[in-house]
Protein backbone atom coordinates (compact mmCIF):
# COMPACT_ATOMS: atom_id res chain seq x y z
CA UNK A 1 0.00 0.00 0.00
CA UNK A 2 1.36 3.44 -0.93
CA UNK A 3 2.63 5.70 1.81
CA UNK A 4 2.00 9.35 1.11
CA UNK A 5 3.06 12.50 2.94
CA UNK A 6 0.69 15.44 2.91
CA UNK A 7 1.84 18.63 4.64
CA UNK A 8 4.27 16.61 6.77
CA UNK A 9 1.61 14.10 7.84
CA UNK A 10 2.30 10.58 6.64
CA UNK A 11 -0.42 8.04 5.99
CA UNK A 12 -0.73 4.65 4.35
CA UNK A 13 -3.70 4.36 2.01
CA UNK A 14 -4.98 1.69 -0.39
CA UNK A 15 -3.86 1.70 -4.01
CA UNK A 16 -5.87 4.07 -6.21
CA UNK A 17 -6.88 6.46 -3.42
CA UNK A 18 -6.85 10.08 -4.50
CA UNK A 19 -4.74 12.67 -2.72
CA UNK A 20 -7.91 14.33 -1.47
CA UNK A 21 -9.26 11.13 0.08
CA UNK A 22 -5.89 10.51 1.72
CA UNK A 23 -5.94 14.06 3.12
CA UNK A 24 -9.48 13.54 4.40
CA UNK A 25 -8.27 10.45 6.23
CA UNK A 26 -5.68 12.58 8.00
CA UNK A 27 -8.25 15.31 8.55
CA UNK A 28 -7.84 18.75 10.05
CA UNK A 29 -6.75 21.87 8.27
CA UNK A 30 -4.80 20.11 5.57
CA UNK A 31 -7.89 18.83 3.76
CA UNK A 32 -8.14 20.73 0.48
CA UNK A 33 -11.49 22.49 0.02
CA UNK A 34 -13.78 21.13 -2.68
CA UNK A 35 -16.56 22.75 -4.62
CA UNK A 36 -17.27 20.16 -7.30
CA UNK A 37 -15.92 16.86 -5.96
CA UNK A 38 -18.45 14.66 -4.21
CA UNK A 39 -17.28 11.27 -3.01
CA UNK A 40 -20.74 9.76 -3.48
CA UNK A 41 -21.04 10.78 -7.11
CA UNK A 42 -19.16 8.86 -9.74
CA UNK A 43 -17.22 11.01 -12.15
CA UNK A 44 -17.43 14.23 -10.14
CA UNK A 45 -14.42 16.37 -9.43
CA UNK A 46 -11.59 18.03 -11.26
CA UNK A 47 -13.64 20.98 -12.44
CA UNK A 48 -13.58 23.74 -9.86
CA UNK A 49 -9.80 23.56 -9.25
CA UNK A 50 -10.09 24.70 -5.62
CA UNK A 51 -8.47 21.49 -4.44
CA UNK A 52 -5.25 22.12 -6.37
CA UNK A 53 -2.17 20.94 -4.49
CA UNK A 54 1.51 20.85 -5.20
CA UNK A 55 3.19 17.48 -5.64
CA UNK A 56 6.77 18.16 -4.68
CA UNK A 57 7.82 14.54 -5.10
CA UNK A 58 5.99 12.34 -7.60
CA UNK A 59 6.83 8.99 -6.02
CA UNK A 60 9.69 7.09 -4.43
CA UNK A 61 10.65 5.66 -7.83
CA UNK A 62 10.43 8.93 -9.70
CA UNK A 63 11.08 11.74 -7.23
CA UNK A 64 10.62 14.53 -9.75
CA UNK A 65 7.98 17.09 -8.76
CA UNK A 66 4.91 17.37 -10.96
CA UNK A 67 5.26 20.38 -13.27
CA UNK A 68 1.89 21.93 -12.51
CA UNK A 69 -0.41 22.06 -9.54
CA UNK A 70 -2.70 19.04 -9.69
CA UNK A 71 -6.33 18.57 -8.74
CA UNK A 72 -6.09 16.46 -5.59
CA UNK A 73 -9.58 15.04 -6.09
CA UNK A 74 -8.64 13.25 -9.29
CA UNK A 75 -4.96 12.47 -8.87
CA UNK A 76 -4.21 9.04 -7.42
CA UNK A 77 -1.45 8.74 -4.84
CA UNK A 78 1.81 6.92 -5.52
CA UNK A 79 4.14 5.36 -3.02
CA UNK A 80 6.49 7.93 -1.55
CA UNK A 81 4.53 10.87 -2.88
CA UNK A 82 5.04 14.17 -1.08
CA UNK A 83 2.19 16.64 -1.33
CA UNK A 84 2.06 20.22 -0.16
CA UNK A 85 -1.25 21.87 0.47
CA UNK A 86 -1.36 24.68 3.01
CA UNK A 87 2.40 24.61 3.46
CA UNK A 88 2.89 25.84 -0.09
CA UNK A 89 2.39 29.56 -0.73
CA UNK A 90 1.97 28.74 -4.42
CA UNK A 91 -1.08 26.59 -3.68
CA UNK A 92 -2.65 29.24 -1.45
CA UNK A 93 -2.03 31.85 -4.10
CA UNK A 94 -3.69 29.69 -6.76
CA UNK A 95 -6.61 28.96 -4.47
CA UNK A 96 -7.13 32.62 -3.87
CA UNK A 97 -7.22 33.13 -7.62
CA UNK A 98 -9.75 30.32 -8.05
CA UNK A 99 -12.02 31.87 -5.43
CA UNK A 100 -11.84 35.12 -7.35
CA UNK A 101 -12.75 33.35 -10.60
CA UNK A 102 -15.68 31.58 -8.96
CA UNK A 103 -16.95 34.86 -7.57
CA UNK A 104 -16.76 37.04 -10.66
CA UNK A 105 -19.99 35.72 -12.07
CA UNK A 106 -21.57 34.97 -8.73
CA UNK A 107 -23.94 37.64 -7.48
CA UNK A 108 -23.04 38.83 -4.02
CA UNK A 109 -26.62 38.44 -2.88
CA UNK A 110 -25.87 36.47 0.28
CA UNK A 111 -28.21 38.73 2.30
CA UNK A 112 -31.18 37.44 0.33
CA UNK A 113 -29.89 33.97 -0.51
CA UNK A 114 -31.35 30.96 1.24
CA UNK A 115 -28.05 29.14 1.13
CA UNK A 116 -26.26 31.78 3.19
CA UNK A 117 -24.88 30.23 6.33
CA UNK A 118 -24.44 26.80 4.83
CA UNK A 119 -22.87 27.84 1.55
CA UNK A 120 -19.62 26.19 0.52
CA UNK A 121 -18.64 29.15 -1.60
CA UNK A 122 -19.19 31.51 1.31
CA UNK A 123 -16.96 29.38 3.51
CA UNK A 124 -14.36 29.07 0.79
CA UNK A 125 -14.15 32.78 0.12
CA UNK A 126 -14.06 33.52 3.84
CA UNK A 127 -11.10 31.20 4.31
CA UNK A 128 -9.21 31.66 1.09
CA UNK A 129 -10.55 34.68 -0.74
CA UNK A 130 -9.18 38.15 -1.12
CA UNK A 131 -10.55 41.10 0.81
CA UNK A 132 -11.24 43.21 -2.21
CA UNK A 133 -12.84 42.66 -5.56
CA UNK A 134 -11.13 43.48 -8.84
CA UNK A 135 -13.95 42.61 -11.21
CA UNK A 136 -15.69 45.71 -12.56
CA UNK A 137 -17.68 44.36 -15.46
CA UNK A 138 -21.28 43.17 -15.64
CA UNK A 139 -22.21 39.76 -14.35
CA UNK A 140 -24.16 37.29 -16.39
CA UNK A 141 -27.85 37.17 -15.64
CA UNK A 142 -30.56 34.58 -16.06
CA UNK A 143 -34.19 34.25 -15.16
CA UNK A 144 -35.20 31.97 -12.35
CA UNK A 145 -36.51 28.64 -13.59
CA UNK A 146 -38.71 26.14 -11.80
CA UNK A 147 -37.56 22.61 -12.38
CA UNK A 148 -40.27 20.55 -10.77
CA UNK A 149 -42.84 21.80 -8.31
CA UNK A 150 -40.43 22.08 -5.40
CA UNK A 151 -37.08 23.07 -6.88
CA UNK A 152 -36.07 26.45 -8.17
CA UNK A 153 -33.00 26.94 -10.32
CA UNK A 154 -31.32 30.32 -10.13
CA UNK A 155 -28.50 30.17 -12.67
CA UNK A 156 -27.01 33.52 -11.60
CA UNK A 157 -25.57 31.82 -8.55
CA UNK A 158 -24.43 28.63 -10.25
CA UNK A 159 -20.71 27.88 -10.29
CA UNK A 160 -21.10 24.99 -12.75
CA UNK A 161 -19.78 22.28 -10.47
CA UNK A 162 -21.86 19.66 -12.31
CA UNK A 163 -22.77 17.98 -9.00
CA UNK A 164 -26.50 18.21 -9.65
CA UNK A 165 -25.99 16.81 -13.14
CA UNK A 166 -24.26 13.75 -11.75
CA UNK A 167 -26.86 13.40 -9.00
CA UNK A 168 -29.81 13.65 -11.35
CA UNK A 169 -28.23 11.20 -13.75
CA UNK A 170 -27.07 8.70 -11.21
CA UNK A 171 -30.19 8.41 -9.10
CA UNK A 172 -32.51 8.14 -12.09
CA UNK A 173 -32.45 5.88 -15.10
CA UNK A 174 -33.22 8.47 -17.71
CA UNK A 175 -31.02 11.46 -18.32
CA UNK A 176 -32.99 14.69 -18.11
CA UNK A 177 -30.60 17.10 -16.46
CA UNK A 178 -27.53 18.53 -18.11
CA UNK A 179 -25.49 21.51 -19.21
CA UNK A 180 -26.34 23.61 -22.23
CA UNK A 181 -24.08 25.99 -24.13
CA UNK A 182 -20.44 26.69 -23.58
CA UNK A 183 -17.97 28.74 -21.59
CA UNK A 184 -19.33 31.27 -19.12
CA UNK A 185 -22.67 31.15 -20.94
CA UNK A 186 -23.05 27.48 -19.95
CA UNK A 187 -26.30 26.80 -18.22
CA UNK A 188 -27.70 23.99 -16.10
CA UNK A 189 -30.93 22.91 -17.66
CA UNK A 190 -33.39 20.12 -17.89
CA UNK A 191 -34.36 18.62 -21.20
CA UNK A 192 -36.46 21.36 -22.88
CA UNK A 193 -37.21 22.82 -19.45
CA UNK A 194 -38.90 19.65 -18.26
CA UNK A 195 -39.42 19.06 -14.59
CA UNK A 196 -37.17 16.50 -12.97
CA UNK A 197 -39.79 13.90 -12.25
CA UNK A 198 -38.11 11.57 -9.86
CA UNK A 199 -38.63 10.32 -6.30
CA UNK A 200 -35.17 11.51 -5.29
CA UNK A 201 -34.94 14.72 -7.28
CA UNK A 202 -34.82 16.86 -4.15
CA UNK A 203 -31.28 15.71 -3.49
CA UNK A 204 -29.96 18.11 -6.11
CA UNK A 205 -30.73 20.84 -3.57
CA UNK A 206 -28.54 19.21 -0.96
CA UNK A 207 -25.59 18.62 -3.25
CA UNK A 208 -25.60 22.17 -4.63
CA UNK A 209 -22.65 23.96 -3.01
CA UNK A 210 -24.26 27.36 -3.58
CA UNK A 211 -27.78 28.70 -3.65
CA UNK A 212 -28.48 27.89 -7.28
CA UNK A 213 -30.89 25.08 -6.48
CA UNK A 214 -33.20 25.87 -3.62
CA UNK A 215 -36.13 24.22 -1.89
CA UNK A 216 -39.25 26.12 -2.86
CA UNK A 217 -41.07 25.00 0.27
CA UNK A 218 -38.38 26.76 2.31
CA UNK A 219 -37.58 29.80 0.21
CA UNK A 220 -37.48 33.01 2.26
CA UNK A 221 -39.01 31.28 5.27
CA UNK A 222 -36.11 31.77 7.62
CA UNK A 223 -32.35 32.18 7.84
CA UNK A 224 -30.74 28.86 8.52
CA UNK A 225 -28.92 30.10 11.60
CA UNK A 226 -32.19 30.85 13.34
CA UNK A 227 -33.22 27.22 13.05
CA UNK A 228 -32.23 24.32 15.22
CA UNK A 229 -31.06 21.30 13.23
CA UNK A 230 -32.15 18.02 14.84
CA UNK A 231 -31.38 14.51 13.71
CA UNK A 232 -34.63 12.64 13.18
CA UNK A 233 -35.95 9.55 11.49
CA UNK A 234 -39.17 7.96 10.36
CA UNK A 235 -40.13 4.72 8.72
CA UNK A 236 -39.92 5.39 5.04
CA UNK A 237 -40.45 2.77 2.39
CA UNK A 238 -38.41 4.60 -0.22
CA UNK A 239 -35.33 5.76 1.64
CA UNK A 240 -33.55 5.26 4.94
CA UNK A 241 -35.68 7.97 6.54
CA UNK A 242 -32.68 9.39 8.38
CA UNK A 243 -32.81 13.15 8.06
CA UNK A 244 -32.12 16.45 9.71
CA UNK A 245 -35.20 18.49 10.54
CA UNK A 246 -34.70 22.22 10.91
CA UNK A 247 -36.94 23.49 13.67
CA UNK A 248 -37.99 26.86 14.89
CA UNK A 249 -39.70 26.31 18.21
CA UNK A 250 -41.81 23.27 17.61
CA UNK A 251 -42.39 24.00 13.97
CA UNK A 252 -40.44 22.13 11.26
CA UNK A 253 -39.30 24.57 8.57
CA UNK A 254 -37.49 22.17 6.33
CA UNK A 255 -36.08 18.67 6.06
CA UNK A 256 -32.69 17.88 4.59
CA UNK A 257 -30.41 14.89 4.33
CA UNK A 258 -27.72 14.41 6.95
CA UNK A 259 -24.36 15.79 6.00
CA UNK A 260 -20.94 14.67 7.12
CA UNK A 261 -18.02 16.88 8.13
CA UNK A 262 -17.15 17.53 4.49
CA UNK A 263 -20.66 18.78 3.76
CA UNK A 264 -21.53 15.67 1.81
CA UNK A 265 -24.87 13.96 2.08
CA UNK A 266 -24.60 10.72 4.04
CA UNK A 267 -27.69 9.10 2.56
CA UNK A 268 -29.91 10.47 -0.16
CA UNK A 269 -33.49 10.97 1.00
CA UNK A 270 -36.73 10.79 -0.94
CA UNK A 271 -39.00 13.67 -1.84
CA UNK A 272 -41.73 12.37 0.46
CA UNK A 273 -39.55 12.84 3.51
CA UNK A 274 -38.20 16.14 2.26
CA UNK A 275 -41.35 17.97 1.26
CA UNK A 276 -44.41 16.20 2.58
CA UNK A 277 -43.63 15.49 6.20
CA UNK A 278 -43.30 18.71 8.07
CA UNK A 279 -45.38 17.94 11.12
CA UNK A 280 -43.53 17.29 14.39
CA UNK A 281 -45.49 14.06 14.87
CA UNK A 282 -44.08 12.66 11.61
CA UNK A 283 -40.58 12.41 13.05
CA UNK A 284 -38.82 10.72 15.91
CA UNK A 285 -36.23 13.21 17.13
CA UNK A 286 -32.85 11.72 18.00
CA UNK A 287 -31.04 14.81 19.20
CA UNK A 288 -29.23 17.88 17.92
CA UNK A 289 -27.36 17.46 14.67
CA UNK A 290 -23.59 17.83 14.78
CA UNK A 291 -22.41 21.00 13.17
CA UNK A 292 -18.97 21.88 12.05
CA UNK A 293 -17.28 24.44 14.23
CA UNK A 294 -16.63 26.51 11.15
CA UNK A 295 -20.31 26.75 10.38
CA UNK A 296 -21.92 30.06 10.98
CA UNK A 297 -24.97 28.14 12.20
CA UNK A 298 -22.98 26.99 15.21
CA UNK A 299 -22.42 30.54 16.34
CA UNK A 300 -23.37 31.15 19.95
CA UNK A 301 -24.47 27.57 20.24
CA UNK A 302 -21.40 25.40 20.13
CA UNK A 303 -18.53 27.81 20.72
CA UNK A 304 -16.72 30.45 18.80
CA UNK A 305 -16.15 30.47 15.10
CA UNK A 306 -12.77 28.89 14.42
CA UNK A 307 -10.78 30.06 11.52
CA UNK A 308 -8.36 27.43 10.20
CA UNK A 309 -4.80 28.16 11.12
CA UNK A 310 -2.52 28.44 8.16
CA UNK A 311 0.89 26.99 8.84
CA UNK A 312 3.08 29.39 6.94
CA UNK A 313 6.28 31.26 7.57
CA UNK A 314 5.51 34.79 8.74
CA UNK A 315 6.67 36.48 5.56
CA UNK A 316 4.07 34.65 3.46
CA UNK A 317 1.18 35.49 5.69
CA UNK A 318 -1.19 38.11 4.51
CA UNK A 319 -2.69 40.60 6.84
CA UNK A 320 -5.98 38.77 6.97
CA UNK A 321 -4.57 35.44 7.97
CA UNK A 322 -2.88 36.87 11.02
Amino acid sequence: MPIVTIDNHTIEVPEGTTILEAARKIGGDIVPPTMCYYSKLKGSGGKCRTCLVKVSQGSAKDPRPMPKLVASCSTPVADGMVVQNITSPEVLEARKAIVEFLLINHPLDCPVCDQAGECDLQNLSYEHGANTERYEEDRREYDKVDIGPNIQLHMNRCILCYRCVYTANQIANSRVHGVLYRGDQAEISTYIQNAIDNEFSGNVIDVCPVGALTDKTFRFKSRVWFLKPMNAHRNCTKCSGKVVVWKFGNEIYRVTARKDQFHEVEEFICNDCRYDHKQPEDWTIEGPAKLSKQSVISQNQYGNLKKPSIILPIEHRTEKQE
Binding site: G46, C48, F101, L102, I104, R182, G183
Partner: peptide, 11 residues
Amino acid sequence: ESCGQCSPCRE
Protein backbone atom coordinates in the same frame (compact mmCIF):
# COMPACT_ATOMS: atom_id res chain seq x y z
CA GLU B 1 -14.53 28.59 -27.30
CA SER B 2 -13.92 27.84 -23.62
CA CYS B 3 -15.95 24.75 -22.75
CA GLY B 4 -16.91 26.09 -19.34
CA GLN B 5 -15.91 23.05 -17.39
CA CYS B 6 -13.20 24.36 -15.09
CA SER B 7 -13.47 27.71 -13.39
CA PRO B 8 -10.18 29.52 -14.23
CA CYS B 9 -10.71 29.20 -17.97
CA ARG B 10 -14.47 29.69 -17.95
CA GLU B 11 -14.40 32.88 -15.93
